[in-house]
Computed example of a mutant assay.
Amino acid sequence: MKGDKNYILAFLLPAFLLLGTFVYYPFLKSFYLSFFRTNGFFNKKFVGLDNYERLFSDDLLGAATLHTLEIMLYVLIFQVGIALVLAVMVDSISKGKQFFRTVFFFPIVISGAAISLLFVLIYNYQFGLLNGIIAKLGFEPILWMSETGSLKAVAVPTVWHYVGFYFVLFLTAMSKIPSDFYEAAKLEGIGGIKKTTMLTIPLILSDIKVVMILAITGTLKIFDFVFILTRGGNGTELLGTYMYKKALVDQNFGYGSTIAIYIVIFGVVLSLITNRLLKREEVTY
């Protein structure tokens, strides 16, 4: 028995080392630096809670938080919603599931930077694909990256990028539902949308909750789409880009670290709220 424990520890040790090096140490280091005014290398000065007090009076941080929440709303409604609808549709067919699984999952293997550059070309005012189509139809071109439309324009590639990932998670969860349940529902005359709402969704509710939490925490990490498309301008500043600007552009690692701690706490609070709202007795089968 003791030998088995040693083997378990030996296999877990590399994972603990990686987590400690790339997750826990950076977090603790950020927490430490949040009490200083520093450029990350020199000129370190202890300022106590000044950086945290600054959070509450930082209007740009408040705007970045609201923008992040707006993107999060789009992600939860469209990214998770479209993934669920696609999974229900594909799960109802008998042939071709593997084909659709591959096609819908494909965007996730493309880097966010590549997708962002693609949408830079699509949104281009003079030579972009969208305005090219609009011009062919006889309409005036549209400034897609305007002050009022930029955030929605950024949301489109963000949603598209991860729809396939959540689609596969939902489809996998649905494939685990025993066929006896559907056969019984068929005998009761339950089918179509009613079968989906009364049977499928309740049985995968725990998976939906996990996907929603992943979507929420994933939104807090969005950086490449915003940075490449707008550099955070035109009302698209998110928490990730604002933290980057404060830490690396303004060389204020102390305040940048404070924003990082804020993002972590914000994500944990939103995850707990989501978990609480969707809390219910698990359906077993």
Results as ranks from 00 to 15, higher is better:
Arg54Thr: 06
Gly81Asp: 06
Phe105Leu: 14
Phe31Lys: 05
Ser111Trp: 03
Ser150Thr: 15
Leu117Ile: 04
Lys195Tyr: 05
Thr200Arg: 00
Tyr255Thr: 13
Val109Phe: 05
Leu66Phe: 11
Gly233Trp: 01
Ile134His: 01
Arg231Cys: 02
Asn6Cys: 13
Pro26Phe: 11
Val210Arg: 02
Gly192Tyr: 09
Ala83Val: 08
Phe225Ser: 00
Leu214Met: 15
Val211Lys: 11
Leu171Ser: 02
Met145Asp: 01
Glu237Ile: 14
Val156Ser: 02
Asp50Pro: 09
Gly232Asp: 01
Lys136Cys: 01
Lys246Asn: 07
Phe181Cys: 00
Thr148His: 15
Leu9Gly: 15
Leu214Pro: 11
Leu118Met: 15
Glu70Ser: 05
Val109Thr: 09
Ile261Gln: 09
Leu214Tyr: 09
Val75His: 03
Asp207Asn: 15
Lys44Ala: 12
Leu143Val: 09
Thr172Ala: 13
Lys152Gln: 14
Ser92Asp: 11
Leu86His: 06
Leu169Phe: 11
Val154Glu: 04
Leu137Asp: 03
Ile222Phe: 09
Gly48Glu: 05
Gly191Phe: 12
Gln126Thr: 08
Leu238Val: 15
Met212Asp: 00
Ser271Phe: 10
Glu147Arg: 10
Ile177Ser: 00
Leu28Met: 12
Thr230Trp: 04
Gly267Ser: 12
Met145Cys: 09
Val283Trp: 02
Asp180Phe: 00
Leu18Thr: 03
Phe225Lys: 09
Val211Asp: 05
Asp59Ser: 13
Thr148Lys: 15
Leu13Asp: 05
Gly3Lys: 09
Phe16Ser: 06
Glu237Arg: 12
Asn43Val: 05
Arg54Phe: 05
Asn234Met: 10
Gly240Pro: 01
Thr236Cys: 13
Thr284Asp: 05
Ile110His: 06
Glu281Cys: 01
Leu60Asn: 15
Thr284Leu: 13
Lys221Gly: 08
Glu281Ile: 10
Gln251Arg: 07
Asn234Trp: 03
Lys95Ser: 11
Ile133His: 10
Pro157Leu: 14
Ile263Asn: 02
Leu171Met: 08
Leu278His: 01
Asn252Phe: 04
Leu117Phe: 13
Leu272Asn: 07
Val283Leu: 06
Met243Arg: 11
Ala173His: 01
Phe31Ile: 02
Val268Gln: 10
Ala247Thr: 12
Asp250Phe: 13
Met72Pro: 00
Leu129Ile: 09
Ile177Glu: 00
Thr196Ala: 08
Trp144Lys: 04
Leu248Met: 12
Ser116Leu: 01
Leu229Arg: 05
Val23Glu: 04
Leu121Tyr: 07
Leu238Thr: 13
Tyr255Phe: 11
Leu137Phe: 08
Phe27Pro: 08
Pro157Asn: 14
Gly48Phe: 10
Phe165Ser: 13
Phe78Ser: 07
Val85Lys: 00
Phe99Ser: 10
Gly3Ala: 14
Phe167Ala: 08
Tyr162Cys: 09
Ile263Lys: 07
Arg54Ala: 14
Glu140His: 04
Phe31Tyr: 05
Val85Leu: 04
Lys45Val: 14
Ser146Trp: 11
Leu60Lys: 15
Lys195Arg: 12
Glu147Tyr: 14
Tyr166Gln: 12
Ala260Ile: 04
Met72Val: 02
Val268Trp: 04
Gly128His: 02
Val211Gln: 11
Glu282Tyr: 07
Gly192Val: 06
Thr217Lys: 12
Thr219Val: 12
Gly132Ile: 05
Gly256Phe: 05
Glu53Ile: 13
Phe127Lys: 09
